[in-house]
């Protein structure tokens, strides 16, 4: 069993009117089974309302399945006695950087998680230092979070999660509110965590370019897993992604357009280098 495993997970939202009477039931997640191995870099794509955030909230026991089971590192998330272990092992980073920072000083904010876990003070400081170094924010440790850019705030949020020594980090559209530079900083930090620290990463995003380094991609639609494969396999299916309200990276799209007009190029080109290499082979 992997670090996060879901089996036939269904989640129903019960909609109520103003009087509190049940108006209807919406099934946001339908029969999702996945098994994520330790050290994986997983990406989850899907249009607005496809159920990806609802699913992600099951990965650290913010939501519980209506049917089916979710295990985090072998622990059933509905087991109340394991709740704190689960939240420590699977940490979550959300979209809005301003909603996640509580400390007056960067290092205090990062220390908040381990402090709540009852870690001895000395070790808290060690963890704060290594976490801030891992995301490249150590030199800002004495700064006020208010004065940081969006990308820097998100990296502090990530450090706050890492300081709890999780096995898995779930990022729900962490770059949606950032400018191009901030987006790059955050993705670089996330990749380094996965490469160097071997932390399992689950990245939810609307930016196709951010996931070309993932080792597996799930595409959700109407609460179900509609596609599953490597980035290359997924991005080879340009038309299908369009039907699912998604797109492919610009490089992939350009290669696809060239291919359609008769230039014989391989499917699923993901980077500028790959495209240039493929064109070079043509002469």
């Amino acid at each position: 069993m992997g670090i996060i495993k879901t089996k036939n997970v269904v989640f129903d939202y019960i909609r109520r009117n103003e009087e509190g009477d049940v108006e209807g039931i919406t099934t946001a997640v339908k029969d999702v089974s996945m098994d994520i191995q330790e050290g994986d870099f997983i990406a989850i794509l899907g249009h607005n309302g496809s159920g990806k955030s609802t699913l992600a909230k099951h990965f650290n026991a913010i939501l519980y399945p209506t049917e089916g089971t979710v295990w985090v590192n072998g622990k059933d998330t509905t087991d109340d006695s394991k709740l704190w272990d689960i939240r420590q092992e699977a940490g979550m980073v959300f979209q809005n950087p301003d909603n996640q920072i509580i400390g007056q000083v960067v290092e205090e904010d990062v220390g908040f998680g381990p402090e709540n876990m009852g870690i001895p003070t000395r070790e808290i400081w060690e963890r704060v230092e290594e976490s801030l170094k891992a995301v490249g924010m150590y030199e800002y440790r004495k700064h006020s979070p208010n004065k940081l850019s969006g990308g820097q705030k998100q990296r502090v949020s990530i450090a706050g999660v890492i300081a709890m020594h999780p096995k898995c980090i779930i990022l729900d559209e962490p770059t949606a509110m950032l400018d191009p530079n901030g987006r790059k900083e955050v993705i670089r930090a996330v990749r380094a965590l996965n490469d160097v620290e071997r932390v399992t990463v689950i990245l939810i995003t609307h930016y196709m370019e951010e996931i070309i380094y993932a080792n597996k991609v799930f595409v959700m639609d109407a609460g179900e897993i509609a596609m599953e494969g490597t980035p290359r396999e997924i991005f080879s299916q340009v038309e299908k992604l369009k039907q699912l309200r998604l797109e492919v990276p610009k490089v992939t799209l350009l290669a696809y357009e060239l291919k359609k007009s008769g230039l014989d190029l391989p499917d699923g080109i993901l980077t500028t280098k790959e495209l240039a290499d493929a064109l070079e082979q043509k002469g």
Binding site: G46, Q95, A176
Partner: peptide, 9 residues
């Protein structure tokens, strides 16, 4: 277009 999926954008 912030926060919208590619088709929404």
């Amino acid at each position: 277009t912030a926060g919208l999926d590619p088709k929404g954008r």
